[in-house]
């Protein structure tokens, strides 16, 4: 278990992280989300022991961080952290050795993971010869090959095509099943919604959300409908309760005001669709998306919080 208790971090007079506390349990994927400048990177670096907190404590299984714990942590940074002129195998051997792996273990794990991601033929190529997606996979391998108990993934799907993203997701879910603590940071709310069991949302160094996806959505109530409709749907803009209409592929995401009588709204939409000669094939009340929750909270907080 990973615990952050009242963590504070200052850069001069600027407080980057303010009294942050949360717990990450084994077998869970914890999403750490927030707008730019929220304190995510600082929090990550505090957990990774790259930075030292100015206040509070970080505990791993109830004990303060020690040097031995570094071998139990895997970190996938947002940007590629590889030496371009090194061969893939040399780079992975080096990073594995720094995590306390033996040469044979490294070799075995490198072969296993390269094979898993279809990169075996790139083993002796230089890192600079890899595409962005391949580099990301190599970086991922370096973060998991030593079987860490705590894994931090910062934008892991960046640069990956859908097939590779699915491969990576499958590995992440396997690790979750194996009881590892997985911390996940992303700007893409849809991804966080799919992957994470628990969300920590930061803004201006404070924690403003902490709960499971389900609990958070329930707390914020429903505010969207998904509508499949053919014909001119511009009439929707004229319905007062509707705040926003977004096209998502062939469907429409309709955001309505909080507190709206959903049944009355549905009736109004159906009637007006009929009056305008439109045909509705599907209508579903959605739970609020993490994106909309994020925007509503981060937007409100940005307006109300004074600049530091």
């Amino acid at each position: 278990m990973l615990q952050l208790n009242h963590i504070t971090k200052n850069y001069g007079s600027f407080r980057a992280v303010d009294d942050l506390s949360f717990t990450a349990e084994e077998g869970k994927i914890i999403g750490i989300i927030g707008p730019n400048g929220a304190g995510k990177s600082t929090t990550i670096r505090l957990i990774m022991n790259i930075l030292q907190p100015d206040g509070g404590e970080i505990l791993i299984n109830g004990k303060p961080y020690s040097d031995e714990d570094s071998d139990q942590i895997g970190y996938l940074p947002e940007e590629r952290g590889l030496y371009k002129k090194q061969k893939v195998s040399e780079m992975l051997h080096y990073l594995g050795a720094l995590k306390g792996m033996t040469k044979d273990d490294c070799e075995h794990q490198i072969d296993h993971w390269l094979n898993r991601f279809g990169l075996t033929e790139w083993k002796d190529k230089k890192v600079e010869a890899l595409s962005k997606g391949m580099s990301q996979k190599i970086q991922f391998i370096s973060s998991v090959m030593h079987s860490p108990k705590i894994l931090f993934l910062d934008e892991p799907f960046s640069g990956l095509d859908p097939v590779s993203s699915d491969q990576l997701l499958a590995v992440i879910r396997e690790m979750k099943e194996q009881g590892r603590i997985i911390l996940f940071s992303t700007h893409v709310m849809e991804t966080a919604e799919i992957i994470c069991d628990h969300i920590i949302m930061l803004n201006h160094g404070h924690k403003i959300l902490d709960g499971t996806i389900h609990d958070i959505k329930r707390e914020f109530g429903s505010d969207t409908l998904t509508l499949d409709i053919t014909g001119n749907h511009s009439f929707l803009q004229g319905i007062p309760a509707i705040v926003d209409v977004r096209e998502r592929g062939n469907s429409l995401n309709i955001v309505f005001q909080k507190g709206t009588d959903i049944n009355a709204l549905i009736v109004e939409i159906v009637n007006k669709a009929f009056q305008n000669g439109c045909a509705i094939s599907s209508l579903k009340v959605d739970e609020p998306s993490l994106h909309s929750i994020f925007v509503s909270i981060a937007g409100d907080k940005n307006e109300s919080e004074p600049q530091k």
Binding site: M48, N49, E78, E79, S142
Partner: peptide, 17 residues
């Protein structure tokens, strides 16, 4: 400089001081 500008230093510092 290369370690810092390529951000590999963040990866290294998770393993060593």
């Amino acid at each position: 400089l290369e370690d810092k500008s390529t951000k590999i230093v963040d990866v290294l510092l998770t393993s060593v001081t």
